[in-house]
Write a protein that binds this DNA or RNA. Structure first.
Length: 101
DNA sequence: ACTGTGACGGGGC
DNA sequence: CGCCCCGCCACAG
């Protein structure tokens, strides 16, 4: 489980972001958004954790961590709408979940 | 088996 | 927009 979640997080391409619930669902565990946190905690360092945000593109972290996440995202070309990520333009879109758009 | 923990998500006011 | 409550799941002691 944790391994799968981590594996999914690693799939998030640069310049994109995904919500905890989305990662969990993509990994095959819809509803396990909280477990994503575990995956990040257990690993925390060897994956693009900064590409994981909360529902609506809100950065849930705080203090230094939250700052770094935002900085890292902006450094990848991710745009922000106030305190949130521009999901409409940066939400990860897995091939299978892609739509005619 | 029970309790505490956690970077969640959705709904109501 | 902030606040509160509930549901959800897995891990650790």
């Amino acid at each position: 489980m944790l391994a799968v979640l981590r594996q999914t997080v690693r799939k998030i391409p640069k310049g994109k972001v995904a919500t905890y619930g989305q990662v969990a669902a993509e990994a095959g565990f819809p509803g396990c958004a909280r477990q994503v946190v575990w995956a990040l905690h257990d690993c925390g360092g060897a994956l693009p954790w900064h590409r994981v945000v909360g529902a609506g593109g809100r950065i849930l972290l705080g203090g230094h961590a939250g700052m770094e996440q935002r900085i890292r995202l902006q450094s990848e070309g991710v745009a922000f709408q106030g305190d949130r990520v521009s999901m409409a333009r940066h939400q990860w879109r897995p091939a299978k979940r892609a739509r005619t758009g």
